[in-house]
Write a protein that binds this DNA or RNA. Sequence first.
DNA 1: CGCTATGTTGAGCAGATGCTCAATATGGAA
DNA 2: TTCCATATTGAGCATCTGCTCAACATAGCG
Lengths: 198, 198
Amino acid sequence: MTIDRRAAILAAAADLIREKGVAAVRTRDVTARAGVGIGLLNHYFKWNELRALAAAQALWAEIDRVVPDAPAPDRQLDVFLSRAFGEDADPLWRLWIEVTDLAMSDPDMARAAEGCAEGMVNELAAILEQGAAGHLWHCPVPHAAALRILAFHDGLVGFVLTGLPKVERADAAAHLKRFVALELGLPQQNDHVPSRLV
Amino acid sequence: MTIDRRAAILAAAADLIREKGVAAVRTRDVTARAGVGIGLLNHYFKWNELRALAAAQALWAEIDRVVPDAPAPDRQLDVFLSRAFGEDADPLWRLWIEVTDLAMSDPDMARAAEGCAEGMVNELAAILEQGAAGHLWHCPVPHAAALRILAFHDGLVGFVLTGLPKVERADAAAHLKRFVALELGLPQQNDHVPSRLV
DNA sequence: CGCTATGTTGAGCAGATGCTCAATATGGAA
DNA sequence: TTCCATATTGAGCATCTGCTCAACATAGCG
């Protein structure tokens, strides 16, 4: 039995996408990294398919790297909020922006990224639901609340990463914390939200 | 004095970008539309510069088309909210997503789009400030509030247009209305926000 | 008219890139 | 060992695309 070179090609593509972004990766880069001939890539994949599968795999890998487990829902939420605009998470969100942009015109990409998007919402919704069940906060419709929080976060992340418009990371984090507190009926912690922002 | 063919090239590029998106437009498309030779484009511009200038011009044109004037700030806000997720506005937001994505790796694009981004924030901030001055609502820091509202809107628009994750236009509009009402201390209008969402 | 400066043209260049396909290697069955 | 199906290779093809540059057109001036 030979090594599974199909999987090697997919893994190489995902690695390269994490390193250079989706748009910058070429078929030749992938086959070189995987240590196989150019022809083999086209034997197993069409480039659009491979790129979409690899991008989704890269997204999951970044999500796993950025969103670690925590014991209790309130700790999980703290971790989410404190890492939301950290530079550690930049690769994830750069990739996310690129993938969603491509998904507008590439059906393969749209299909492949579907699971990631739903996964992110569901993961946050689960945290919110657990916290609500444990009376840590109030959250009648966790899925909808998760959607809102992620939408706000997504928008702010775009601002921070593109500078359109220019927003400081710390300000973005403060905005998000304030929104989440509002959303969950938690008391505002004014040390986190400078009066210049609200 | 000859016709200003430089302006014709820029205008043709902007038109094509509005029709097909930034990524789909080629130098040859632009010169053909402008009715000039290929060489003239390169005489007056570098392609990256032209693309960035034209994209910014296209953005402004879409903004002007989607955001008309209204007499009073509360009417302006109503118009903003009711059009925020209308299909009329799709071209604007598709373009916006593409431009911000490109701005991450293209300094020309980032510089050209800067004004658009600041303009959108300032325009909304002005509305919020006027409304606050007229005691229509409460808004201590209009610029920060405008930033938050646009960030939330941007995030939701991305969800609606890419389907990552899938969100209905009507739900997105309801979420945004609720967010704005919360932000401005307005009473919630429950007919606009189904209980399924909150 | 001749002369010069500026405006304009488009065939063709150079480089990039996904993909083909004839040739070759490999592994297992008979 | 022989044979065949499958795996694998990479030079080369076809296409695309921004840009060059030698040639040509035009307008203003003396």
